[in-house]
Write a protein that binds this DNA or RNA. Structure first.
Lengths: 175, 175
DNA sequence: CTAAAATAGTTCAGGACTAAACAATTCAGG
DNA sequence: CCTGAATTGTTTAGTCCTGAACTATTTTAG
């Protein structure tokens, strides 16, 4: 992630650098978006940094393995690329890497000779489990400033937002 | 921004592709994080797409101009790079582009001969205003699924989260 | 059946960003 | 002062991803 983080608009200031835009009153939604973007970007950057430091892997690779971990029977590459919201070319590259490292394997799809079914090897599963445990601790630590009620509330609110956004732009693939 | 979007962990399913991880119970914080990341990534991708389509510019460029718009007197490049949470080299590149297009100008800093002060030209200000207006409409549209009370509540909750995260990792620069 | 359209995966050129090395300048401690 | 450390902006090599072109296969319409 990325990386960037702001957008902005008109007039007045506020407290924190990035989202320090978006005027008074009315611009409440814009301000919410800017803060949402800034928070997410920052946390994502930190996760990315730690994955690199602790395990020497990219976030993309972690996401890839996370997705496969859920599907023991494996996934077609195209499906995986939709879940990960990345292009097919990207999945090809990640698969090549992970296969080289013995963490995932390609198998022929019985019903479609064009496609592969990729799945974690035992080594891949073990490797992911180790990383996932630590990853979750990072999240718990970062979100520990929120009480459980707030956590559930935000989860629901983001759900509301997501449903609305997905409706207006059917671009959103995933199931 | 790119691009990726998930992370994950253990066990059970949920409803939407990406965040369709994170087991039952307890994993509430992890689930919140995954949903937050997925929502933000999706909206960001859409904003990026529209900026490209409507104005032919990158999000990075829009962010850059947004930041300068707030500071009529201009900013030192190093300060700008902190606000935007990107590297100095990136700011150098963006500045070169924008300067070529006549949207920003470099001026010598009177108190430090190493640094430049960059600011929007009149053309740059006008250009940004046009884009910012439309940009805000997009946000209003995307967030219109939330009532104002929810919007303010989420804004406050994210503020809480951000303060906590920034404390634990002084990596966060910006003021 | 068969031709045309759609789809799965791959390859490759290119865009955007980073991290690290660098020159110029400023700052800090003796 | 004045030398060493820190900081500003730039350059460069490298990473990671996209979009478009391509091959091989499957699906769809007639």
């Amino acid at each position: 992630m990325r990386n960037d983080a702001s957008h902005a608009a008109l007039s007045d200031a506020e407290e924190l650098g990035h989202e320090a835009r978006a005027g008074r009153e009315d611009h409440a939604m814009l301000r919410l978006w800017l803060r949402m973007l800034a928070s997410t970007t920052q946390i994502e950057a930190e996760i990315r940094r730690r994955l690199r430091e602790r395990f020497g892997i990219s976030l993309a690779r972690f996401d890839y393995m996370a997705q496969l971990y859920r599907y023991e029977e494996g996934l077609k590459m195209r499906v995986l690329s939709r879940y990960l919201m990345v292009t097919g070319g990207n999945v090809t590259g990640l698969t090549d890497e992970l296969e080289r490292d013995g963490l995932v394997g390609r198998a022929h799809s019985p019903d479609d000779r064009r496609s592969w079914i990729v799945s974690l090897t035992p080594k891949g599963r073990a490797s992911f489990e180790t990383m996932a445990k630590e990853h979750e601790q990072w999240i718990l630590e970062m979100f520990s400033g929120l009480d459980m009620k707030t956590v559930r509330q935000m989860h629901a609110q983001l759900g509301q937002l997501r449903v609305h956004v997905m409706r207006s732009e059917p671009a959103g693939e995933e199931g």
